[in-house]
Design a protein around this nucleic acid. Structure first.
Lengths: 92, 92
DNA sequence: ATGATATTTTGATGATTATCTAAATATAGT
DNA sequence: ACTATATTTAGATAATCATCAAAATATCAT
């Protein structure tokens, strides 16, 4: 299900950090992996979790695979939270 | 960590449904359990996960234990998502 | 104190997850 | 075709998770 996989994806600090990094700029899998003290296959796994959750997009350019943020799922997630939260006293 | 446990708590549909129910009104553990085809201990476990994540508050009143929404954590969660999402073209 | 009701805790089980190393795939340059 | 580079897939392991049945705890009423 959409929300479950999105929240599951967000529940890991490594994946949240990846999303933060991708917010700044698109990056290759290698550039991402270098930022962590974790093996490349593990990062690849995390990227796949994010991809399955619809939070990132991957695109091959030559030898590299570029990852970028896909914000469309965020709408769904934020909408759910806002509904729960009741929009009370937010400036958004 | 705060965000991790919050997102993990939100990643389960049973727990999301509990939060939705608690948004409408405070409920006892028994009332909550009756809404699901799941054993009471399992619901108790889910309630504990939500409690550990700071998303619900429990208060004993006589024989019953009432659960209610605790919205304070939602601020943190929504703030994280807004930061990632970049507030771009939202009406909030 | 005893019994009934409400809820949690314990202990066990099968499923999922994060991680690793090693092997496989894909692209580019020579 | 061959080699180097970038990244993923496969296979294994240890940790975490959702679930259940049975036992334990807490409160209330008699």
């Amino acid at each position: 299900m959409g929300l479950s996989s999105a929240f599951k994806a967000l529940s890991d600090p490594v994946r949240r950090k990846i999303l933060y990094m991708l917010k700044e700029r698109d990056m290759t899998a290698g550039e991402i992996a270098e930022k962590f003290d974790i093996s490349w296959p593990t990062i690849s796994h995390h990227l796949n979790v994010l991809k399955q959750a619809g939070m990132v997009i991957d695109e091959r350019k030559g030898q590299n695979i570029y990852y970028s943020l896909n914000t469309s799922v965020f709408e769904e997630v934020v909408a759910f939270l806002m509904e729960l939260w009741g929009r009370k006293e937010t400036g958004f």
